[in-house]
């Protein structure tokens, strides 16, 4: 019961923090839409071309937008000592990683869920593809949050090169992009592809607390 109360208060704190930093979330969404417009202007007015590569564009930009927020994942709480305080308050480093990942998913990734329908209109993506895009996004974005947690915790030990973490996320995101785009483009294989994506989610979700927890611990030790 005590641990449940601590988890609830953890999310109360995350909610307050994200509310005060709402402009960061808004910046991510603005980046997403500005990039879509740049793609549209660079490809030209051919509706067929835009429509055929639209899903790929959406997924690429979702990936890039979510990497923008990675710096905030652990860095602030690490620098002001809150990661340690949370640990001393009875939350293991692994549990902190899991809670932070859910927080990133809820407060950073979920606002994109409301942006996707508008992006679909701009990129001339068919309405019936929207449900496939939503389902692949919910699973894919959670995988990105898990990968973001691992790379951000690694970055705590590497203060000189923040981009390295983003590159790691992008490399490991390739299979997610392949299967997520495949879900929309190959509707007849929806079940098998979503199962593979779900399998990847289970693997990264299992690795995340161990890897992130260890990196947080090592960075606090060496700080």
């Amino acid at each position: 019961m005590i641990i449940l109360n601590k988890v609830i208060s953890f999310y109360y704190r995350e909610y307050k923090l994200n509310l005060s930093g709402f402009q960061d979330i808004l910046t991510n969404i603005i980046f997403f839409f500005v990039s879509i417009f740049i793609f549209i202007f660079s490809i030209g007015p051919d509706k067929e071309t835009i429509s055929s590569i639209g899903i790929g564009i959406v997924w690429t930009l979702l990936l890039l937008s979510s990497t923008l927020s990675l710096r905030k994942f652990y860095q602030d709480d690490f620098e002001n000592g809150n990661l340690l305080i949370m640990h001393l308050n009875g939350l293991s480093f692994g549990l902190i990683a899991i809670l932070k990942t859910f927080s990133h998913f809820i407060f950073v990734q979920m606002p994109f869920l409301f942006s996707i329908p508008i992006a679909c209109i701009l990129l001339n993506i068919a309405n019936h593809d929207l449900i496939y895009l939503f389902s692949s996004f919910v699973i894919g974005s959670f995988i990105l949050s898990c990968l973001g947690s691992i790379s951000s915790s690694m970055n705590l030990m590497n203060k000189r090169n923040f981009l390295l973490g983003s590159i790691i996320v992008m490399i490991f995101s390739v299979p997610i992009i392949i299967f997520s785009v495949g879900i929309v483009n190959l509707e007849e294989n929806f079940n098998s592809l979503i199962s593979i994506l779900f399998g990847i989610l289970l693997i990264v979700f299992a690795i995340n607390p161990w890897a992130s927890g260890l990196c947080i611990r090592l960075s606090l030790e060496n700080n």
């Binding site: 208060s9 307050k16 005060s20 000592g81 809150n82």
Partner: peptide, 27 residues
């Protein structure tokens, strides 16, 4: 409990909001 050489209060929030958060977090 531990006080490090850095400050753990959340800079974007008010003093009252920080107090409310601490009261909840530390039950």
């Amino acid at each position: 409990t531990y006080i490090a050489d850095k400050t753990s209060s959340l800079s974007k929030l008010s003093v009252q909001e920080n107090i409310n958060i601490w009261k909840k977090i530390f039950l």
